[in-house]
Simulated scan of single mutants.
Amino acid sequence: MHALLALLGDLSRQELHGLTDEESLDRTALLVAAGNMVAAELTRTVRHAETTQAPERDGLTSMRSWLVGHQRVSANDASKLMRAGRTLPSFPLVAAGFAAGEITAAQVDVIADAVGPKEIAAAAAQGIELAGFDEAWARVARECSHDSLKVAVQAFQAALDPDGPEPDPTEARSLRIVKHADGSTTGRWDLDAVASEKVQAAIESQVQADRPKGDTRTRVQQQADALVQIADNQLASGQLPILRGEKPHVVVQLALEDLIDPATGAQTASMGFGAQISAARARWLACDAVVSRVVMGPDGTPLDYGRKHRIVPAPLRRAVVARDKNCVFAGCGAPHWWADVHHLVHWINGGETSLKNSALLCERHHTKVHHGFSVVRDPGGRWRTYRPDGTEILIGPLLS
């Protein structure tokens, strides 16, 4: 492994300006093949780590969580790795082509996204042989376009379910929301016909109720505004389920001096789901909001409830969320709305209900900390996590 890293380092230092067009293309083709081989080996290793429950060493329940938290792999890419690892053993020819560098990780994902353990079990129950599909897909992946493989995979889905979708429509429903660096989001949903009708009826009612004279918005802009208005109406109704002891609401954290200062202040305020907005936008929201004072300094007596309270009051939870943002267990980062406020020194052992004695932990890691693991906030404000044997869980690749 170290020799491989050293070789890649040597390649990155090679001068490319002297290459002919033919040499540039040959080099590119070889690197694509090498990248495929590395991706195949990564997939195989991740699958092995998953089946041996290796992430438990670092207090995590899945390799997906470990890849996201410890190696900073995107959640989407981690899911693809997991899917591929579970599917490839059933398709040895595709796996061999992947390992030889002839098939790409994206092609493998086309197969794995459509054919997982559930579909493989269904095929076995119906007496459908996988070998023929394995041979066909390996050949198409090596010789044809990416879209051709998608068509070939659809043939398996048709053979598996010639009569159409299952009567239960909820199995096919999905909603994906992707957050970007500036806090904006893009999304995609997949809904059955009846669910689509419900959503379209709700959005259309709002669109038709808001058609001011001179409206120059496009249709897609009107629909987006309608969706936001539906969310506004639901949040204002107070009828949504309670979330961690409080009604769901929009949270904006802003320093007092920025609230008063008339300057715009780009990326000055932070929101509950992690987005950064300007001070001007925060002041706009504050016009129709409840303002809560959260004192983070050492003299913040309202945040210190001493021994009188074992249950964490809402103002203290807001302060802990403002400081920690998410689960502080190494490699986790679960959002604060999944998390509990943990007493570092347990209340029953004399620990106070205070900001200093609190840490934000998701349910799984709250349990882990009560069974041998520990989290400690060092003098510099950085959270550190320790295994039951006292060794620290460190984040990042081991390159030396």
Rank of each mutant, 00 (worst) to 15 (best):
R318V: 04
V294I: 15
H370F: 10
A289T: 07
R283G: 06
R310P: 03
C287F: 07
F273R: 11
R317A: 06
P313F: 00
A334N: 01
A322T: 12
T268Y: 08
G351Q: 00
M296Q: 11
A280I: 06
V291R: 12
G274I: 06
I348W: 13
P302V: 07
T367W: 08
L316I: 04
W338I: 10
H366F: 05
D340F: 07
V345F: 13
K308F: 10
H342R: 09
R377I: 09
G297A: 14
V321H: 02
A280S: 13
G350Y: 10
V376S: 02
A319D: 00
V312T: 06
S374D: 05
G380P: 00
G380W: 07
M296K: 02
H309V: 14
Y305Q: 15
F329P: 01
F373D: 06
A359V: 14
G272V: 02
G350F: 12
V341F: 12
A279L: 06
A269W: 03
G350V: 13
G331I: 00
R318Q: 12
H343A: 11
C332T: 06
A359K: 12
H343R: 09
R283W: 08
A279S: 13
R318H: 12
C287V: 12
L316D: 05
K356W: 07
D340G: 06
A269H: 03
K325Q: 11
V369D: 03
A330K: 05
P379R: 09
R317P: 01
A282E: 00
V369G: 00
A359R: 07
R283K: 10
